[in-house]
């Protein structure tokens, strides 16, 4: 394949990564934005979504119906688990930032290891509901002007296009929820000043549980969407958490728009960088990037400098 078509393929694959990443990072960013806590167990909610997708799909006997069912059930279940964790653990820590991180590390291992015990160490696939191969054309300058042709290998599946579309739709829905609904207003009020919100009669505790659940459900949804492309495995949360951290920190903690832009940037470049570097080296660069952004530009690369 020539370089041009190859780059286009890499960008399309990158767009799929970006879509899933944006969903997951939006959840992490939402939780940090409203509750001011860093949820280290966020990757495990993603993993749980993927594993539950397999469980639900195989219980329903596979096929498109199983996947659709998983798409509805997995985020709900994971969201409920997260909300329960908020009410039983985080609330009692008064959302103290450092103690919350330690507790969510504990939660990370509990979820991961329980999955290992129940689901096992295997990686398992879920069948996509539809998976038509769509060949893509490329433009070439032949004799007498531009010509369309279909290079061998330049294609994308209908499912991957669906993932991109679904993520965009969900993010648009999240934005509408935050800006145009009563519950979104409550969340934003809580984000600005929790005590003041409480004084104005907003049930801050319930808002926190809801936000923590919603954030986890977004991660789980990302997990369900990815599982027909990658398989479900009990350790898949770690890398996903790292990537979400990168996105959220570069996009500026707590900003939804910044998060989406950063997810597109990271998702796209992830595909392209891995062409040039080994995956390990790419990850080293990514971790150091997060560290240096926090050290030298803590408001994020795109965020505004506070005060």
């Amino acid at each position: 394949m020539d370089f041009g078509p190859y780059l286009m393929l890499a960008s399309l694959e990158g767009a799929v990564t970006a879509a899933v990443l944006a969903l997951m990072a939006a959840g992490l960013s939402l939780v940090f934005g409203v509750m001011r806590v860093v949820n280290v167990a966020h990757g495990e909610f993603y993993m749980l979504g993927a594993v539950l997708a397999w469980v639900v799909a195989s219980m329903a006997g596979g096929g498109a119906a199983g996947f659709v069912l998983a798409l509805a059930v997995a985020p709900l279940v994971v969201g409920a688990v997260a909300a329960a964790a908020d009410v039983t653990v985080l609330k009692h820590l008064d959302y103290d930032p450092e103690r919350t991180i330690v507790a969510t590390i504990g939660l990370l291992y509990i979820l991961q290891q329980l999955t290992l015990m129940g689901y096992g160490p295997e990686a398992r696939p879920v069948e996509p509901p539809f998976n038509a191969r769509i060949a893509l054309p490329w433009v070439e300058w032949g004799q007498g002007g531009p010509q369309l042709y279909w290079p061998w290998g330049l294609s994308i599946t209908s499912y991957k296009l669906f993932v991109i579309g679904a993520a965009a739709a969900v993010l648009a829905g999240l934005w509408a929820l935050m800006t145009h609904t009563r519950i979104g207003l409550m969340m934003r009020a809580t984000q600005l000043d929790g005590e003041m919100a409480q004084a104005f009669g907003i049930p801050v505790e319930r808002v926190y549980a809801l936000v923590f659940g919603l954030g986890a459900a977004l991660a789980a949804l990302a997990g369900v969407l990815i599982v027909p492309i990658q398989q479900a495995h009990y350790l898949m949360g770690g890398d996903a958490l790292l990537l979400s951290f990168i996105v959220v920190i570069i996009g500026g903690l707590g900003s939804l728009a910044g998060t989406v832009i950063a997810a597109i940037l990271i998702g796209m470049s992830d595909g392209i960088i891995s062409v040039f570097f080994s995956p390990t080296l790419a990850k080293i660069i990514a971790t150091l990037l997060v560290a240096f952004v926090l050290v030298f530009r803590p408001e994020g690369l795109m965020g505004k400098r506070a005060r």
Binding site: L93, V102, A103, G106, Y109, I110, Q112, Q113, L114
Partner: peptide, 15 residues
């Protein structure tokens, strides 16, 4: 799954 013990211990200790 021995890290389960670690996870539970972390949560209980912070609480």
């Amino acid at each position: 799954a021995y890290m389960l013990i670690a996870g539970i211990a972390l949560v209980l200790l912070t609480l």
